[in-house]
Design a protein around this nucleic acid. Structure first.
Length: 499
RNA sequence: GAGCCGUUAGCUCAGUCGGUAGAGCAUCUGACUUUUAAUCAGAGGGUCGGCGGUUCGAACCCGCCACGGCUCACCA
């Protein structure tokens, strides 16, 4: 086959070595191996602080397994590094200990091969914790060479397409994904301990609703209908509030058929939470708890460095009304009641662009986005968004120009969006219809009204505080990742062609 | 979607003025019983992303295409 012709010298040699192993009765793709209780981490924890002399005296025997990722051979004694999920650990092979046959097997073994090793824990003259091999079991042959051991895999395209190579050679990346898991677990634990119920709702939907986004369309053969990948979990979760679950959350993947860049992937994780009888102040407290919990995973003092800026999650997050924030950063005061003309004048004076159809609320929001947002560094809740830009939020009781909504900003980016949910079914239907009309006029993005959801509201949804958090971005923040692709094991990539 | 940049050995990267391909790691041969980017001596390895053009001659200049990265606009 044509594939065989593509073998380079190294792949050819490795295949020959594979055959040679078989001839010696060794399975190049071996079987079960029991590394007693030890991974490298445990060995380091147990023996890392012991002296060279003590270890030499005790002769503690351990058995580990892993991938050989470096080899420093000399004539009849060699050092090599073995990589397991805990990290790498050095092992030491002497011909006079393992015998000539095994030593030759080791010499012929390539970087990338898997070994099981039983031996004593020692420390070298340089003080490095090392397994002095006594028995070696060949476990798996690697037929392709690993990337550069020193630089690791650098080409971003290969890092994302062949994540397994990135995980082998770039320890930072490996550890970032371990941290991802810890953060997710910590957040779940936080929600659970606050008496929220974790649920899973459909990913395949008949109507993609709950957000303004273009969905992925797929097809169900047996029913012969098109279905949509969910773009939000919102409306399903609110049905569960109607159903009396009172506190629910879902942390999972949603899909939006939109552009990709360092902050957007077509599939990504959100966590939405809904709590009956919460108002947006309660949700702020909940949100703060979530972010502190996540920060705690990476930093005991809740101080996190992101791309050179130290973020402090230890203090209570600042809370500021959007209008106050604009006043603070620009001196412009939107508190007095004003006409659109007056607001436009302020916009003109401050170089804020606006559209003809904008109302005062839109202009306030533009001031915030243009003049304030980028200057917000430390975690801060901005609340009281104008009603014009917040169609799903309850109006504020004291000042109906604004809503009971907030967003969490860190380093100029939005990390959470929350509000006291609209629970008036008649109002909800009108807003859906207005939205559907907009879509219809803008043609292809038309989406049918989620009638079933409106009906659910008609049975009564208690006052509810809802929250949405972008989980990937939260993890990026906590792991100092520049791109969303660095926190996704397998980011979406265009298929590679043969050119 | 627009702009800019990139693609050279398995990997990480050089490649001057357009003169026909280089290094380190890895691989192969040899030496070496505490190395750690091991060392020393030697060797092999290339459709220079793809297709076309200009030229006596193209990794290099031009055009188109593919994939990727960054920035901007939109969204989380």
């Amino acid at each position: 086959m044509a594939k065989e012709e593509k073998l380079n010298d190294q792949m050819f040699v490795r295949r020959q070595k594979m055959d040679a192993l078989r001839e010696q009765g060794i399975d190049p793709f071996g079987h079960r191996f029991a590394p007693d209780h030890d991974i490298s981490t445990e060995i380091r924890a147990k023996y890392g602080n012991d002296s060279e002399e003590l270890l030499a005296q005790q002769q503690n025997e351990v058995t580990i397994a892993g991938r050989m990722i470096a080899k420093r051979g000399s004539g009849k004694a060699s050092f090599a590094d073995l990589l397991d999920r805990g990290g790498k650990i050095q092992f030491y092979v002497r011909q006079d200990v393992v015998g000539e046959e095994t030593y030759q097997l080791f010499k012929d073994s390539d970087i990338g091969d898997f070994w099981g090793i039983t031996g004593d824990v020692i420390k070298t003259r340089m003080g490095e914790l090392t397994i002095r091999a006594r028995k070696m079991t060949f476990l798996t042959k690697a037929l392709r060479p690993l990337p550069d051991k020193y630089h690791g895999l650098q080409d971003p395209e290969l890092v994302y397409r062949q994540r397994y190579l990135d995980l082998i050679t770039n320890r930072d990346s490996f550890e970032r994904f371990q941290t991802w898991t810890k953060i997710i677990k910590a957040i779940r634990n936080y929600m659970d301990s606050n008496d929220f119920t974790e649920v899973e709702t459909p990913i395949l939907e008949n109507v993609a609703s709950g957000a303004e986004a273009r969905p992925f369309i797929t097809h169900h053969n047996a029913l012969d209908i098109d279905m949509y990948m969910r773009i939000a979990t919102e409306l399903r979760l609110k049905r569960l509030i109607v159903g009396g679950m009172e506190r629910v959350y879902e942390l999972g993947r949603i899909f939006r058929n939109e552009g990709m860049d360092p902050h957007h992937n077509p599939e990504f994780d959100t966590m939405e939470t809904y709590a009956a009888y919460f108002d947006f102040n309660d949700v702020m407290q909940e949100t703060e708890g979530i972010f502190k919990t996540a920060a705690k995973v990476v930093s005991d003092d809740l101080k996190v460095n992101y791309q050179g800026t130290e973020l402090d999650f230890s203090k209570p997050f600042e809370r500021m009304h959007m209008v106050d924030a604009i006043k603070k950063f620009t001196g412009v005061d939107f508190w007095p009641e004003m006409t659109v003309e007056e607001a436009r004048k302020l916009a003109d004076e401050n170089g804020v662009q606006y559209e003809d159809w904008w109302k005062v609320g839109h202009i306030i929001n533009a001031f915030f986005e243009d003049k304030v947002q980028d200057q917000l560094e430390q975690p801060i809740f901005i609340y009281g968004h104008p009603k014009e830009i917040s169609p799903l939020a309850h109006l504020n009781r004291e000042d109906p120009r604004f809503t009971d909504r907030f967003e969490l900003y860190i380093l100029g980016n939005e990390y959470a969006n929350a509000f006291t949910e609209l629970n008036d079914p008649i109002d909800q239907r009108q807003r859906f219809e207005a939205e559907a009309k907009e879509h219809a006029e803008g043609n292809d993005e038309y989406q049918p009204i989620d009638e079933d959801f409106v009906e659910a509201l008609e049975y009564g949804m208690p006052p509810t505080g809802g929250l949405g958090v972008g989980i990937d971005r939260l993890v990026m923040l906590m792991t100092d990742a520049k791109s969303i692709r660095d926190v996704l094991l397998f980011p979406t990539m265009r298929p590679k062609t043969n050119n």
